[in-house]
């Protein structure tokens, strides 16, 4: 019975609705995420396969996470006032001037 179950589980199933719904819930109650498209650099045309494998390379993904963290921290340290607050303050000021 468990063999049949394994086989049934292995069948392809559309979980698109699940992914879509999860994205919506994560926007509100979970950790937000972003999706980026990175093109193969023109200087690395001969390593096409290696480049495409990066998508599943845990070491690369970990390095990317660290890079995002360091980049954001450094950027925020350069601008002591939170950009959003600043922007909304500017917007309010321009509203008043109108």
């Amino acid at each position: 019975m468990s063999k049949i179950w394994k086989w049934i589980k292995s069948r392809k199933r559309t979980l698109v609705k699940y992914e879509e719904a999860k994205e919506e819930f994560e926007k509100i109650i979970g950790r937000p995420s972003i999706r980026l498209v990175v093109e193969l650099p023109t200087s690395l045309e001969d390593v096409r396969d290696e480049f495409q494998e990066l998508e599943n390379d845990e070491e690369f993904l970990e390095a990317l996470r660290r890079f995002v963290e360091d980049y954001l921290k450094e950027r925020l340290s350069r601008a002591p006032q939170r950009p959003r607050e600043q922007e909304s303050g500017e917007a309010e000021a321009s509203d008043e001037s109108v």
Partner: peptide, 18 residues
């Protein structure tokens, strides 16, 4: 049933991960 399950599962996995 499948739409309801996928939506609730998405909510449940998101909050339980949190």
């Amino acid at each position: 049933d499948s739409t309801a399950l996928l939506m609730i599962a998405a909510a449940a996995t998101t909050i339980s991960k949190f």
